[in-house]
Amino acid sequence: MTDKALSITQVSKDRGKTRVLDDITLSLAPGQRVALLGHNGAGKSTLIKSILGLTSIHVGTIRIGDATPGSAQARRDTAYLPEAVSFHPALTGREQLTLFAQLSGSRADVPSLLDRVGLGNALDRRIGTYSKGMRQRLGLAQVLLGRPKVALLDEPTSGLDPISRQDLYAIIDELAGQGTAVLIASHALTEVEARTDRIAIMREGRMVADDTLNNLSALAGLPIRLKVRASANPEALAAELGGNRINGASVELLCSPDDKMEALRRIAGLGDAVADVEMTPPKLEDLYRHYAQEEMQ
């Protein structure tokens, strides 16, 4: 028995002469939320299809719990929300979700489930009248059927307005709280930065980063930005601290994490000449650029 909801071990896959997955290793524990990032063509979709058992791998192993992708047990334990979700336009939301529940053997309360994803007022409307965001919500309701061990979400906020995005991540948090491991493939870096436990970054079929945001930041060694606002004389402040003048009244400094405290002591030593200090650590966008940058030719 394994204590991992999803285990991917040294997986490789070739498409013709091109290696599209190259020695990928990734694991998710029950309840973990992991963001899967990478440029288009990095291999994210191929990896997800391999987890679902829709495409074969040539080397390595993938397990959903103890089950092999594509097996009956793996299909029961895995939920999937594609980016381009599609349903029969002639069915109502209630009919479509009821059909999915019957196919999965779930005894879910369909009206309550649709209400939970914000479709309570549209459960008897035909899906052909739904907006893209409403179809995305219906897809999320499908993910919520039963209690999957693993949920694979491919660009789950596509087509959703800001409030709906917040609602979606609240539901993702509920899923994780129930023990579902959630893998989110997304380009919405600001969203996943605050709502996931780990960041995994792929580049050209390889996994180039897999850790918490804080650990990735420390490993990358990217600089911290300090914005120092002068009380009265920005020229004198710039001369004392160096750095770049910005907005006419402030100076921006870059320092390594190890030098942060020394820089703050220097700034504090200037006393009343300093009106304010803002410190900005590297953001996920900075880390993504660092780890996912294309190799030099």
Score class of each variant (00 low, 15 high):
D115H: 09
E83C: 03
F100A: 04
T78P: 12
A84K: 13
Q73C: 05
P89T: 14
G93I: 02
A84C: 10
A84D: 14
V85A: 09
L91P: 14
L91N: 14
P82K: 05
D77E: 15
A101M: 05
D115N: 14
P111N: 05
R107P: 07
R116Q: 12
L103W: 05
S112E: 09
Y80E: 00
A74Y: 06
L91R: 13
G105D: 06
E83R: 02
D77G: 13
F100R: 01
Q102W: 09
V85M: 00
R75C: 09
S106F: 06
T98G: 15
A74S: 12
P89R: 13
V117G: 06
L97R: 03
A84W: 04
V110W: 04
P111V: 07
R76S: 15
V85N: 08
L103P: 02
G105T: 04
D109P: 12
V85R: 08
L99D: 00
T78H: 03
R107Y: 02
L113V: 08
D115M: 12
L114T: 08
F87T: 00
L97E: 12
Y80A: 00
A101T: 04
R116T: 13
F100S: 01
L113E: 06
L99E: 02
E83D: 13
F87P: 01
D109A: 08
A79T: 03
V85W: 00
R116C: 13
G93D: 07
L114S: 07
A74F: 08
L103I: 11
Q73T: 13
L103E: 01
S86P: 11
R75S: 10
R76V: 08
Q102Y: 05
L81A: 03
L103H: 02
A79V: 05
R75K: 14
A90G: 15
L103Y: 02
G105H: 04
P89E: 14
Q73S: 13
T78R: 12
E83K: 01
R116P: 09
D115L: 08
L97H: 12
L114A: 04
S106I: 03
V117W: 09
L91I: 09
A79F: 07
T78V: 13
Y80W: 15
D77V: 03
R116H: 11
R107C: 05
A101S: 15
D115I: 05
R94K: 15
P89L: 13
Y80H: 14
L103R: 00
Q96W: 04
P82I: 00
T78Y: 03
L81C: 08
F100I: 01
L113N: 05
Y80R: 02
L99R: 14
S112A: 09
T98K: 12
E95S: 04
D115G: 11
R116W: 10
T92Q: 00
F100W: 09
H88C: 12
P89W: 15
P82Q: 08
R116F: 05
A79N: 06
L113G: 05
L81N: 02
V110A: 04
A84H: 11
V110Y: 09
V117F: 11
D115V: 10
R75H: 10
L113M: 12
L103K: 00
L114F: 04
A74E: 10
R107F: 01
P82V: 04
Q96G: 00
